[in-house]
């Protein structure tokens, strides 16, 4: 029983990890916690769903198309709502993301209706035998796709100019600007990239349950918990933190209480902030004045 729970927990965790990566990406590049990230992912998933229903393209193509769709949503959102607030106090941007949450959440209900729809899965739920444990193909597929996204992201940050510019901007915005990094473009890239990744996470989570306008809220909460566990400033930390959260959640639901499995994320957040507020993977950085 336990190996299955762990593997499906890792699959869940890697879905959270993708959303957490989006949160951390935007936070690093622009110092904004985007509370609407989950809802943007949900809207992107609905767009993919409509595309799938209208055109009948194979699911793999849809998964690939999710990246430009998400990117476009992110870029437009950044231009329209975040750019005008660039020089305002950070709390204003945070409030604006809450406005975005309302727009995307209820906009989706308004456009696509409030009834859940079935979203086909890329992978079959049939179990395969790995080292004696019966593991659903589905879980392996989810972990595989997430791993691919993380690998692409790694290459982007290590080997491309845009990626290096983003890293520089997140370390010291003013110095990066003086070195010729275009801060506006960094912010735009971060929002586009983050939303693209989060739509992939939406596409992975939708087949597990049904797709509806509420689907991403629980995922967002756990992505927050995972990101905080990882330190909120470290991409690696966010991934590991979310994997841990996914596994704990599955074990918790199976052995302790299924009805509290969504709120335990809150307990993790509190516990981390009490014991090791800087997270497991980052050192505490003193703020310069």
């Amino acid at each position: 029983m336990i190996p299955q729970l762990v593997v499906s927990g890792l699959a869940l965790g890697s879905i959270y990890a993708l959303l957490a990566l989006s949160l951390v990406l935007i936070n690093k590049a622009t110092d904004v916690v985007n509370f609407a990230q989950g809802e943007m992912a949900m809207v992107g998933t609905f767009v993919c769903f409509t595309l799938l229903a209208r055109t009948g393209l194979p699911l793999v193509i849809i998964l690939v198309l999710a990246v430009p769709i998400g990117g476009l949503i992110g870029i437009v959102t950044e231009r329209v709502t975040m750019r005008p607030l660039q020089s305002a106090p950070p709390i204003n941007s945070l409030i604006a993301t809450i406005g975005l949450w309302m727009v995307f959440h209820h906009g989706a209900g308004w456009i696509w209706g409030y009834d859940p729809v079935r979203f086909p899965s890329l992978f079959s739920p049939n179990p395969v035998n790995i080292l004696g444990a019966r593991v659903a193909e589905n879980s392996l597929g989810i972990v595989g796709v997430s791993f691919l996204v993380v690998a692409v992201l790694y290459v982007f940050f290590e080997y491309t100019r845009a990626g290096i510019a983003m890293r520089a901007a997140s370390m010291n915005r003013r110095a990066a600007q003086l070195m010729g990094v275009n801060i506006g473009r960094v912010s735009l890239t971060a929002w586009g990239l983050a939303t693209a990744i989060s739509v992939v996470s939406g596409l992975l989570v939708a087949p597990l349950t049904f797709l509806d306008f509420d689907i991403m809220f629980a995922v967002l909460l756990k992505a927050f918990a995972g990101a905080i566990l990882g330190g909120f400033n470290s991409l690696v930390g966010a991934v590991v933190g979310c994997l841990v959260i996914g596994v704990i959640e599955n074990l918790f639901a199976a052995y302790i209480s299924a009805s509290f499995k969504d709120t335990f994320a809150f307990a993790i957040i509190i516990a981390v902030l009490m014991v090791r507020p800087q997270g497991l993977f980052t050192r505490q950085i003193a703020k310069k004045v």
Binding site: L221, F224, T263
Partner: peptide, 28 residues
Amino acid sequence: LPALRVQGHYLAIATLGFALFVQQMLFE
């Protein structure tokens, strides 16, 4: 209390989880 030791938006995230927790608690 728990969010005091860090700067940033942790408090906001903690309050989000807290409200959910209260709602669930009252329901159960």
